[in-house]
C-alpha cells in the first residue's frame, strides 16, 4: 500500500513546497507532529491539505501559513510506556499505563479567523 499513505518526511516536504505555489514563497510552519519520529499519513488527506495551502497562497494578504495537527477528539486516550533500562540499554521492566490528555478544542487555534472552511470527516453524531 505504498501509494495510499505518505511517509512523514514526504508530508513535511510537500507542505513546505505547497507554500511555494502561485508565484509565492510563503513559510509553512507545522506543529503537533514533533513527537512522531516515523509515521505514515493518509495520502488523500495530504493532497487536500496541499491544496488548502496552495489556495492560501492565492490570497494577497496571506504572508505566513501555520499548520497545527491535533487529535480530532481533543480528549484523547494515550498509552504510557514506562521502561527501566540497565547499563546496556536493555529493558529490565516495563509498566504500561493509560493517560488521558485533555487539550484545547480546535476553536482555540482559529476563533478569530475571518473564514473557516471545514473539510474534516464528520462523526454524524446521532445525539446532535
Amino acid at each position: 500500500m505504498r501509494f495510499m499513505h505518505t511517509r512523514l518526511p514526504d508530508f513535511l516536504r510537500k507542505m513546505s513546497e505547497a507554500g511555494k505555489t502561485n508565484g509565492k514563497n510563503i513559510d509553512v510552519s507545522i506543529t503537533g507532529l514533533e513527537q512522531f519520529k516515523t509515521a505514515k499519513l493518509a495520502s488523500a488527506s495530504c493532497g487536500m491539505i496541499e491544496e488548502d495551502i496552495s489556495n492560501l497562497t492565492k490570497l494577497d494578504s496571506v504572508e505566513k501559513i501555520e499548520i497545527k495537527v491535533m487529535p480530532q477528539l481533543p480528549l484523547a486516550l494515550y498509552t504510557v510506556i514506562v521502561n527501566g533500562l540497565d547499563k546496556n540499554g536493555d529493558i529490565e521492566r516495563t509498566y504500561l499505563e493509560t493517560e488521558y490528555i485533555s487539550e484545547p478544542g480546535p476553536e482555540y487555534y482559529y476563533h478569530n479567523s475571518k473564514e473557516v472552511i471545514d473539510h474534516r470527516v464528520k462523526f454524524n453524531n446521532p445525539n446532535n
Binding site: L75, L77, S102, G105
Partner: peptide, 17 residues
Amino acid sequence: FPRNALDETETITGRIA
C-alpha cells in the same frame, strides 16, 4: 459518542473542559 467507551466523561470547547 463520538467519544470512545473508555474516554473521560468530558466536554471540550476552546479552553474549557
